[in-house]
Amino acid sequence: MVDIILINDNLEDVTGEFAMKINDKCVGCGQCAAICKNDAIQVWGKAKITQNCTNCKICSYYCPLNAIEVT
C-alpha cells in the first residue's frame, strides 16, 4: 500500500512517482465522485481528492472535461 498525502487539489505518493491533480476545468459536476468506489473524491464547488484514494485513476477516465490530470 502506498502512503499518500493530500495537498490542496493534488494527490501524490511519498516517493513522488505520480501525481493526480484537479485542474481549473473542473466545474464540480460530481461524475468523478459518483464513479469512485473508494469514496475518495468530495465535491465542494470543485472536486477534491482525499486520502481514501487508491490511485486506480478511474476518475480521470470518466471526467467529461478532462479536469483530472495524472502525471
Rank of each mutant, 00 (worst) to 15 (best):
G30H: 04
Q51G: 11
Q42T: 12
I35R: 08
N23K: 06
I58P: 00
K48E: 15
M20K: 03
G16E: 09
C26T: 06
A47Q: 07
A33P: 03
G30W: 06
K46P: 03
G45D: 14
T54Y: 05
I35Y: 02
N23T: 06
N23L: 05
N38V: 01
I7T: 15
K25D: 08
Q51F: 00
C56G: 08
A40Y: 06
E17N: 14
L6Q: 09
A33H: 01
C36E: 06
M20G: 00
T54N: 14
M20R: 02
F18S: 08
A33E: 14
N23A: 08
C56M: 10
A34K: 11
C26I: 00
A34S: 06
D9Q: 11
A40G: 09
C29H: 07
L11R: 13
Q31H: 08
T54I: 15
C59W: 01
C36I: 02
N52A: 15
A33I: 01
F18R: 08
N23W: 01
A34D: 09
G28S: 05
E17A: 11
T15L: 14
E17I: 09
A34H: 02
C53W: 13
D13C: 02
D39E: 15
A47S: 14
I35H: 03
T15S: 14
D13I: 04
C36N: 03
T15N: 15
C36M: 04
E17Q: 11
L6I: 08
A34L: 10
I58S: 08
I7P: 04
N10H: 08
I49R: 08
G28K: 05
N38E: 15
Q51H: 02
N55P: 00
L11G: 02
K37Y: 00
A33D: 09
F18I: 15
A40V: 05
T50Q: 13
T50N: 10
N38P: 00
C56I: 07
N55T: 10
A47G: 09
A19W: 08
C26V: 04
K48I: 13
Q42L: 13
L6W: 01
D9P: 00
